[in-house]
């Protein structure tokens, strides 16, 4: 309760993050129900494109989450050097995931699958781009922390920032798994 008490900021950051996650869940919830309704509304459903490259991207994103967890453990132990290595790895893998998604979109376009080709392709692009946009936001926070960490200006008070960024990153990982399930299995 005491606003001046230590830990108030940390708690506030976490509460704010969880509130934000609720709104993201509502957005993707609306997206999902739109997809269910749209699929049932008409007989032009042709499945959802889900290239195999998505598995590679999923692996990359999973690895980046593992790296994030490793980094947090190093930070708790006070091992700043190892933290920097793990966190940098996670940032790099995050960038690689986004690059991989861009590659997926390029491949689909090359194969003639566009946003307005059929309902499945429309939902695929909207879902993946919305996810990537959220992920890019998380990645910017991650990269900012990384930059501070590499310049050794990441103070001990930044534990909260690292934790919040990590939770958000894991959440986006889970969200991705959910979307992948929707696209690969539910949609076809």
């Amino acid at each position: 309760m005491n606003v001046a008490a230590p830990g108030a900021r940390r708690r506030a950051s976490h509460t704010g993050l969880y509130a934000f996650l609720c709104s993201v869940i509502m957005f993707f919830g609306a997206f999902t129900s739109a997809m269910v309704v749209r699929r049932g509304a008409s007989n032009d459903w042709k499945g959802i494109p889900a290239p195999d490259l998505l598995w590679v991207n999923t692996g990359i994103l999973a690895l980046s989450s593992v790296a994030v967890e490793k980094a947090r453990r190093h930070l708790r132990e006070g091992n700043r050097k190892n933290f920097n290595i793990a966190w940098s790895t996670a940032s790099l893998l995050g960038a690689l995931f986004i690059a991989g998604q861009i590659l997926v979109w390029k491949d689909l376009r090359a194969a003639g699958v566009f946003l307005n080709s059929h309902p499945g392709s429309a939902f695929f692009y909207v879902g993946t781009v919305a996810h990537a946009a959220h992920l890019a936001g998380g990645w910017i926070a991650m990269a900012f922390l990384n930059w501070q960490a590499l310049r050794w200006t990441l103070g001990p008070g930044k534990r909260t920032a690292v934790d919040v960024a990590s939770i958000y990153w894991h959440f986006l990982g889970l969200l991705w798994v959910y979307l992948l399930w929707l696209f690969r299995f539910w949609g076809n």
Binding site: S23, M26, A34, D44, L115, N116, V126, A130
Partner: peptide, 28 residues
């Protein structure tokens, strides 16, 4: 928190129907 995310999703889909030729809300 629970309502505006849904309107945002609806708005994005409407915008795509308008500008990108998708058919979320437009029948044959």
């Amino acid at each position: 928190l629970f309502a505006f995310g849904v309107l945002l999703a609806g708005g994005v889909l409407l915008l795509l129907d308008r500008e990108a030729g998708t058919s979320f809300f437009l029948p044959a």
